[in-house]
Design a protein around this nucleic acid. Structure first.
Lengths: 363, 363
DNA sequence: GTGAAAGCGCTAACAG
DNA sequence: CTGTTAGCGCTTTCAC
């Protein structure tokens, strides 16, 4: 980045507040006031200062120097699970971003997307971010970037995962309870032979079946809890969870969902319901199932999680979560003045959306 | 923002590089080197420095102070047409963002979304952004925020509009030529009675027909050029452009597109083709047309512009533009070292995608 | 209404 | 390999 930006425009690095003051024969204070406290000087003098500034090409107080002095950067840092660019492919993340952006806007704060290189050791980006606080979106347990955030002496708000971090506010949903509810819905319809499609459970790629022990030790708390909710709900309905096939996918795409469905269906052709831990996966599964000639919900039930717009269009039965509200709440939690006593946790409501991809089992 | 972030965590503002050095009995340089130039001191000493830092709760060099000293912020600022949050609703903007994020990632730069309040005078946010350069996405002519960006002594890259800004690089497409091609396609099919749906042409809301003079004086250059392209293309086919109805919409949503279609169809029921200057509008028009019982493309042709995923799914005939590439190119143009001589303009290719919403006129 | 003094916390020559 | 010297550009009491 060093010389990268040494361009045409940047060469006109010219006047400073001090040189302007000298030129005008006034003190630096006065010039500073002209910009920051217009009421502290006569309008005439202020006008003179600003005019001279323009003539000298003085661009106004340097933002970085001001930040150093005032001890505030005017920006919120955002740390994301994946590469920065991935966020713009995931509809849930996009909605979260929109909500967060809204909160920042209201506050006049900038939103700094912290570059987290692919698998980078480069924790440096976190240390180098000039921000007044961090919002951390859905990180795996024991993430080093997150650890780096915690090192910084600024407030932090986590969305979703990980939970139970001392001195850190959090906003999320009750993933486990939401899944219990979904399981009850399906069990109520009569489903007993179910299969599950879930997102990655650890940092190492495992595109295939996930054992119960792998499920329980998942490094992604959200997935762990969603699976736990399904286990609780189905177990209560008399299903032996250890017999329930869970297929994991590292990539979070519809294609992955479709392929995971094939894998599940091949080995367990008898399942009557496929529960997916995300809408994207479910949408893919739906496509895969229909491509395989299955009738949904006629002879197969498929459900998702998240409540993205595409799921609604597809009539997918799913659990809706307020992604945008999570973003806004995270921003507000970070930026809101006031009662910042002990760490707060905000759990937002979810809603089971029964639509057209779930029904009673065929037989 | 001031006290907003004075929280639990932030109170542990403690050691500085200087106090650490004092504690260790070494110079500040040494401590600085421990962080920035590990090769400049013995591993043993470095370890001692780092250990003591941890013990004292020293979080490492303050990013803002470092930025002041090194004269680089490590971040790129992004200025967007609308409120920050709008960007996350527009699929074209999202793709642009993704591309830009990719370029930033590669460079290890942060991406700072500059908060531009709704209709804010608050140009201050631009002045206050600690960034090494700005990417400006599709701004109207004579925008004051953009003007504020130009005041800053840093490099600037504009995407799309406005064009012809001195000393500023630009990336975009040839909107006019792309529309000429589309017009030729439609004229070739035999369409002579056409109608147009376009995005806002100025900052004041005008949800209705736009006169030729309003078209020509549009403050949004992209819309101006797309309309000009249509005019050129259809005029060449013998159409009197002054008779072509152009319906404008301030909001860029499918609902607006559908409603605009109704408005057009009511007053000009005889048009055989509706050309929209964006896919969103076209998707809305398509919905409106079908809701009105029209057969597309049977008795009505509808086209879009942009090439968003939803347009592909809908089989919409449109002009595809490489939104992601534009974002990446903008980032690279800003960050790439090297030949930064005079201002560069990068025009990316577009492609006419003839799909299932265009066909010969009915009669 | 205006100025003087005192750094914010850090890095970068350049000596040693 | 380590320390000295000089600020980066600005804001902010606190007197005048």
């Amino acid at each position: 980045m060093a010389e990268a930006l040494e361009g045409r425009r940047s060469t006109r690095r010219t006047a400073t507040l001090a040189s302007l003051a000298a030129e005008l024969g006034v003190s630096r204070t006065t010039v500073s006031n002209a910009y920051n406290r217009p009421d502290q000087l006569s309008p005439a003098l202020r006008r003179r200062v600003l005019d001279t500034a323009r003539r000298l090409g003085y661009p106004g107080p340097d933002p970085v120097a001001r930040s150093l002095r005032t001890r505030k950067a005017g920006a919120v840092g955002l740390l994301l699970t994946e590469a920065l660019s991935y966020a713009f492919r995931d509809p849930v993340a996009i909605q979260f971003l929109e909500g967060l952006a809204l909160a920042c806007e209201d506050n006049g704060s900038g939103l700094l997307l912290v570059p987290v290189s692919p698998e980078a050791e480069d924790v440096g980006a976190v240390a180098r971010a000039g921000v007044d606080g961090f919002v951390v979106y859905s990180m795996p347990d024991d993430d080093e970037h997150f650890a780096a955030v915690l090192e910084r002496p600024v407030p932090v708000v986590v969305c979703d995962q990980p939970t139970d971090v001392p001195d850190v506010d959090r906003v999320g949903i009750d993933d486990q309870a939401a899944m219990v509810e979904l399981a009850q819905h399906l069990a109520g319809l009569g489903h007993r032979r179910v299969g599950v499609l879930c997102m990655r459970l650890s940092l190492d790629r495992n595109d295939g079946f996930a054992s119960v022990s792998r499920q329980d030790s998942a490094r992604y708390e959200v997935q762990r809890r969603r699976l736990a909710g399904l286990r609780d709900g189905f177990t209560a309905a008399g299903v032996d969870w250890s017999t329930v096939p869970v297929v994991e996918r590292f990539d979070h795409t519809e294609a992955a969902g479709a392929h995971a469905f094939d894998q599940l269906a091949e080995r367990h052709p008898d399942v009557t319901a496929v529960v997916c831990t995300s809408d994207i996966l479910a949408l893919g599964a739906l496509r895969g199932a229909r491509a395989a000639g299955r009738d949904v919900p006629g002879d197969l039930t498929i459900t998702g999680f998240d409540g993205v717009p595409a799921a609604e269009r597809a009539g997918l039965t799913t659990v809706r979560q307020p992604s945008l509200d999570k973003g806004r709440a995270a921003g507000e939690l970070l930026l809101d003045r006031g009662d910042r006593q002990r760490s707060r946790t905000l759990l937002l409501p979810t809603e089971l959306m029964v639509r057209q991809t779930s029904g009673p089992p065929k037989s």
